[in-house]
Amino acid sequence: MKIAIIKYNAGNTQSVAFALDRIKVEYDITDNPEVITRADKVIFPGVGEASSTMNFLKERKLDKLIPSLKQPVLGICLGMQLMCEYSEENATQCLGIFPFSVKKFNATHVHKVPHTGWNSLTQCSGWLGSQFDNTFVYFVHSYYVPLNGYTVARTEYIAPFCAALEKDNFFAVQFHPEKSGETGERVFRKFLEL
């Protein structure tokens, strides 16, 4: 199986690569459209700011390539947010794979933002499956995707939000499986089995 990790300015690319090393899976970190298109599975990592990251993707024409992919694609954190239509983070037009807007959490002294730390998944379905109900995964983000028809896992912070998505061959998680211990490894395996 050929796995491509999309190479761009995402902050967690190396961590995703290390996580795949730990489960003994081989991969290419690449921005070569041919290699990405031919891969069996594609991982789209993401840590950083939405608008500058979208500009980076546009410069490399990855903004056209990613939505056209036919194999299973997994977006992580900012990767998931960029797969949506629009983000409130610096009013950014995103890739438009998932038809939603990404919103900012309202910080309070009780609910700090960024939402940082381990939080649990509930109502897991679709590609994740109910085995992930009540498992803890690691989050760090200030923007979120509201619950929607493609939600396959939810997490509660201030209000319930969308922790994982599935639409056709596109899959995404708001949390960081590469930083979520054994649970995170199971999430990667689940995706790689699709």
Partner: peptide
Amino acid sequence: VAAKISIP
């Protein structure tokens, strides 16, 4: 550390 450990 990053290679070995799977928590932040």
